[in-house]
Design a binder for these strands. Structure first.
Lengths: 147, 147
DNA sequence: AAAAAGTCTACTAGTTCTATATACTTTGTA
DNA sequence: TACAAAGTATATAGAACTAGTAGACTTTTT
């Protein structure tokens, strides 16, 4: 399961993605629109900023904005910044690898082998999907929904 | 990430799968072989028994065994018994659905839409993979490893 | 100077996970 | 029949993690 942190980050980035090229958006605006606790969202946006995804502007008229085009930001990137491993087993994680305590030999573990496949399938989808794609999907869904 | 409980369950079922058709295996044997705390494993095997996957035999010479052929037990089944949702978002889970608090309209949520795809890919792999397949993979890995 | 807005660090309450403890029941066998 | 082997069941403790809150600070605009 994704953490709330990751989900909030995705929501916020979609909002910021729609606004790409415009003037900065304030934390409080995103928080109230997306039903996210403001103080929590502050931390999350700070993380995304420190990861180089967002720029921030202080003071009156300040706020946050995307540094890059939303088409250049993949969903998997966001999971890694905010939530850690994508894989379902630590011994299978590409970016947060950890040895399984209970496993004698990783190289011959059948369970691990299956979850390598799961990881590959998941990473494929999430690295091929950008924030721009998420926004497009939303647009398409709204269109179909209102028909 | 899968819980320890789920991982231990998978390990235990592989052991029991290799033994399918033979005499029952004791908890303590599985626990020591697979480096699983015995008392914890007791609970897990009990859950798997209550779910109808295992039979148990009390008393001297007792132990656990698979009820069905390991080819008939899918990995996804085990995750659901021991660990709950396979999906990465509660609003996307087939067996443990929960509404997202922060989401206004599920039907038009772009983030959700992406994670439906991830869930489908994951469920496909894990429902097509049986305990027998895991055992076979292990066998193949061992063979390649020793060469 | 005052207000708006982001920054930074610490902390807490709650939950979940992992594991352990204890007492009990059933079964086989000496 | 007594005893030991083995599973059953429930409770509980400790650790780790998550989600959210608090407060003091800095920067920028008006």
């Amino acid at each position: 399961m994704l953490s709330k942190k990751t989900r909030y980050a995705l929501k916020a980035l979609v909002v910021l993605g729609k606004n790409f090229g415009g003037i900065p958006i304030q934390i409080s605006k995103i928080a109230s629109e997306e039903h996210i606790p403001k103080k929590f969202l502050e931390q999350i946006l700070l993380d995304l900023r420190n990861a180089g995804l967002l720029y921030s502007k202080k003071g009156s008229g300040g706020g946050y904005g995307l540094v890059k085009d939303p088409a250049e930001i993949s969903v998997v990137q966001i999971l890694r910044i905010t939530g850690g491993p994508v894989a379902l087993l630590p011994c299978v994680s590409l970016n947060f690898y950890q040895k399984c305590d209970e496993c004698d030999n990783e190289a011959t573990c059948g369970v691990r082998d299956v979850f390598v496949d799961v990881r590959d399938a998941t990473v494929k989808i999430l690295s091929e999907t950008s924030i721009a794609d998420v926004i497009k999907r939303e647009k398409d869904l709204v269109q179909n929904y209102s028909q």
